[in-house]
Design a protein around this nucleic acid. Sequence first.
DNA 1: CGTTTGCTTGAATTCTGTCAAAGCAGGTGG
DNA 2: CCACCTGCTTTGACAGAATTCAAGCAAACG
Lengths: 193, 193
Amino acid sequence: MDRMRAVLHAISPISDSDWEMVLPALSFRSLQKGEILLSEGQVGNQVYFIREGLLRLYYLRDGEEHIRQFFFENGFAADFASCITGAPALLTIDALEPCELTVLDYPTLNQAYDQSPSLQKLGRKIVEYNFLGVARRMTSLFLLDAEARYEELVSSRPKVVQRIPQYMIASYLGVTPEGLSRIRKRLAQPDRS
Amino acid sequence: MDRMRAVLHAISPISDSDWEMVLPALSFRSLQKGEILLSEGQVGNQVYFIREGLLRLYYLRDGEEHIRQFFFENGFAADFASCITGAPALLTIDALEPCELTVLDYPTLNQAYDQSPSLQKLGRKIVEYNFLGVARRMTSLFLLDAEARYEELVSSRPKVVQRIPQYMIASYLGVTPEGLSRIRKRLAQPDRS
DNA sequence: CGTTTGCTTGAATTCTGTCAAAGCAGGTGG
DNA sequence: CCACCTGCTTTGACAGAATTCAAGCAAACG
C-alpha cells in the first residue's frame, strides 16, 4: 500500500490529506491463476494496483481471445474506457498468475478528484500516461508488420517474452501462434549469404 | 472564439475567471490548403481549435504517408503525445482544406491548469476524451479487417467519406487505394446466390 | 507412464500488395 | 466550346505473405 502511494507520488505529488481522501476508495483482493476480474458486459468501475502477480486485458470475439495488454507488478490494471464512460466493458481482465491486488473504486476516486486539485492533477497525469500507452500500441499496430512488432516487444519489454507463453504473445501481436513461430525461426537465422 | 469556449464548456464548466487565464494562451492562424502545421521532429507544443477547415494527422515512413486521424470544424487537432511528453513529434499535421484556427499554447495552458482546479479538471476530461479516441481506433485496427473498418467508418463518420479523397481513406484504414477500391466493389454487390 | 499443453513444421489456400494499364473526372488553356 | 492534361479511381494479372488445417514433437503434470 505504501508501494502504491510511492508509485502514485512519483507521477504527481500527494500530500497526507490527499492520501486520506484516497483511502476510502481502497480495498484488497487476491486472485488465483486464471480467475476473472472483469467480464465483458460488466461496468469496469475499478482500477487495480498489482502488488504481486500478472494480469491480462483482452477482447473476446467469436470465442477467440485477442490480448490487448499485460499488466505487471507495481502497475495499474483497468478497463479505463469503461471507468471513464461508465459504459459496460468490451474487455475482459483475468489473472495469468496468482495475484495480490489493491482495488481502487473509480467513482469514489472521482469524487476525491473534485475535492483536491492535486488529486485532480494526478488523475490527469494517469490518463495522460494511459493515453501515451495506447497511442504507442496503436502506432505499432498501424505502422509495423508482425515481425517488427515482435522485435520491438523483445527489446522494449523483455519481461513479457520471458514470463508469458508464446501463443499469448502471438495474440498480443495480432498473429497466429504458427505465425509467431515462423517469425522467430526467421529471426533466429539471419541472412546466410 | 466563443464557439471554442462553448465547446470546452460542454466538456467541463468554465468560469469567466478561468477563461481569462486561458486567453494568454490563444492566438490565431490561417492556413492554405496543403500547408503544413507541424512537421515530424518539431515539438508539437500547440493545440489547434478548428474554426473552419479540415486537418489531417499522419506518419511519414519511407516517404509514405500513413494517416492516423482527420480533424473537422469545432474540433481540436494536436499531436497530443508530443504536447504531453515535450518530445519531438513523430507525426505531421497539414491542412486538407483552407483553415481558420485558434492556436492554444500548451505550456501556457499547463500553467493555467495549476492555477485553477476547474481548468485542471477540464484538462483531465480532454485527455480522457482523446484517450477514448485512440483506444477506439486501436480496437478497430486490432480486431477488424479492412472491410469491417470501412463499413464502421461509413456508418459512424459519413462526413469523412464524403469530404476526403478515397486514397486518403485507404491510408487511414491501412490498405492500398486498390485494396479499398475492391472493398467498395465487394460491398456494392452483396451476395448474389 | 500416459495425457495434456504448447511449440514447431509442412502443404494447401486465401488474401493482400504490387505493378501496369486503362477509364474518368475536373480544371486549364487554346 | 473543345481538346488536353493531370490526378484519382478502377481493373486485371501476378507474386508474396499470412492464415488455416493437419500432424509431429517435446516438456510438464498428474
